[in-house]
Design a protein around this nucleic acid. Structure first.
Lengths: 217, 217
DNA sequence: CTTCTTCTGCAGCGATCGTTACAGAAGTGA
DNA sequence: TCACTTCTGTAACGATCGCTGCAGAAGAAG
């Protein structure tokens, strides 16, 4: 049934290139001409294949979430303990946010920080996705409380929000030029803030207690 | 010597309004028409008083740094100990980033996250200022090491970068709708990651050691 | 008052924004 | 071969971008 002139470019590759541009410059600061240049196609082809700029961004973001950002869901799903999950989450973010062949930081975090009133809905969309991430973290913490891994009086929301903020800070630092090692140190420092359970309340030796930041990379 | 038709608006108030708009939307997403509407003046008046958009932003940012963001320098200058300085820095940021009558977050952190290639120099300017902030933090930590308040093997850069990331994360969370209390909890959690000195290595009671996040606000 | 200076509103500059109409190119099915 | 369908490059749409020329308004100085 499908007939007509075939597409002259690889749609998947074009979408990948769109991710790169949106990731680097964000939604508003990415113009159509910047996209057509980066994707190597004309504006008409872009609109025929993806709809409009907004739809292209949404699709690019969706693909981003299922590829580059998939490590977050995997960490929460595959690690049984909340602390293990957060540890893996932060450590993998350190490398994911500083891949040499990719833009710095996290697209979900940084792609719609500055937006004009016209694209406020895009910013709201990303904010909703981030809120869902915090909720997933909260669920993981709550499960750990139920499992007895964390005190019952642990503030679920505060703990989840803290590590969400750390991820956002790591993304910002990556965009400011921080290295993978820098981010790893941030991750390790943040993990020192994890609530200590009663079972870990043994008399600490000088080496068991954290003395400095990031020397146990 | 100064003659001619007097200015019909309060330049200081206009600059203050410009801070608000740039703070809220960032450099690129703030258009001249948005500014003229917010400042209540015509474009010609704006250009006569401030030069151009770039110069207005730089001046607005400078004023922002000497007013809304002045608490950072004060914290580092007035608090003798590095830990006290960082504690005050984070706690004051929690309130500064969520003032009900002001835009959320920190203008220095968020005003040029998404920028087009044309305004890359603005982004570089803000990045330089942030780097100077990290350096000031490093100096404070280095002084604490010299004073014996921190172990000599403390990673100065890593510790400073960590708290810089926390501030950036708090700003992002504030923009995502976090409350003052939320940010305060983030600050307290981050302070738990401060390296513990040998003098604090006493046998901890159950209440002295952190058990949860943000319940000792 | 006149003169001088500066500021203001308006109108419009060239450039770019996101988007689309259109004609032709390039494929499929008959 | 001929329709038929879909994609492509070009060229342009109206809107907005940052910015400015210009004439007049509003003060000070004489």
């Amino acid at each position: 049934m499908r007939t007509g002139r075939p597409r002259s470019f690889d749609r998947d590759k074009a979408l990948e290139d769109a991710i790169t541009v949106f990731w680097e410059h964000g939604y508003d600061a990415t113009s159509i001409s910047l996209l057509t240049k980066a994707l190597g196609i004309g504006a008409a082809s872009l609109y025929a294949a993806f709809g409009d700029k907004r739809a292209l961004f949404v699709e690019a973001l969706d693909r981003y979430m299922h590829t580059y950002a998939a490590f977050t869901e995997r960490a929460l799903a595959e690690e049984l303990g909340a602390r293990d999950a957060v540890q893996r989450l932060l450590r993998e973010a350190a490398t994911a946010y500083t891949r040499p062949d990719r833009p710095r930081g996290c697209m979900l975090i940084s792609a719609a920080t500055n937006c004009s009133p016209q694209s406020a809905d895009i910013a709201a969309h990303l904010r909703d996705l981030r809120a869902a991430g915090v909720r997933a973290l909260e669920d993981k913490v709550a499960a750990a409380i139920r499992a007895g891994d964390l005190p019952t009086r642990t503030d679920t929301h505060a703990l989840a929000t803290f590590y969400a903020a750390v991820l956002q800070g790591m993304s910002a630092q990556a965009r400011d030029g921080a290295t993978t090692t820098d981010l790893r140190h941030i991750a390790e420092a943040a993990l020192h803030a994890w609530p200590r359970t009663a079972s870990q309340q043994t008399v600490p030796s000088a080496d068991a207690a954290p003395k400095e930041s990031g020397s146990r990379g």
